[in-house]
């Protein structure tokens, strides 16, 4: 995950409390989404950014997961994500994400 994004997420978690922050990812790939999920839960696996060795344990979802889809206005979802849902490996991403919410 981009170092600047790591910094911003760390600051948001510090300000609002880990339990009050939900990270919603939009990555195009399962593996990359998994890496981002790992970063905001167990810490930066590359040990390069501000979240290296920091276990925030945040709730993390991908925008294409059912749990997110259910809480978004369906018309807005269709307009903003409908096309990408057709294109992305949705199931693969969901499987990858589930690993980080065990």
């Amino acid at each position: 995950m981009d170092l600047e994004n790591q910094k911003r997420i760390k600051e948001l978690a510090e300000t609002h409390g880990n339990e009050n922050v939900v990270v919603v990812l939009g990555g195009a790939e399962a593996e990359a989404s998994g890496l981002a999920a790992e970063t905001v839960t167990a810490g930066d696996p590359t040990f390069a950014g501000p979240l290296a060795g920091v276990q925030l344990g945040l709730s993390v979802y991908h925008i294409t997961e059912e749990a997110v889809k259910e809480v978004v206005d369906s018309a807005v979802y269709e307009e903003q994500v409908g096309m990408m849902e057709m294109v992305l490996p949705v199931e693969e991403i969901a499987e990858e994400m589930a690993q980080f919410r065990a």
Partner: peptide, 16 residues
């Protein structure tokens, strides 16, 4: 981790 960028673009154009 950035995927196949042209292919992702083509899929988006096709989906549209």
């Amino acid at each position: 981790g950035a995927g196949d960028v042209p292919e992702a673009n083509y899929k988006m154009i096709a989906a549209l």
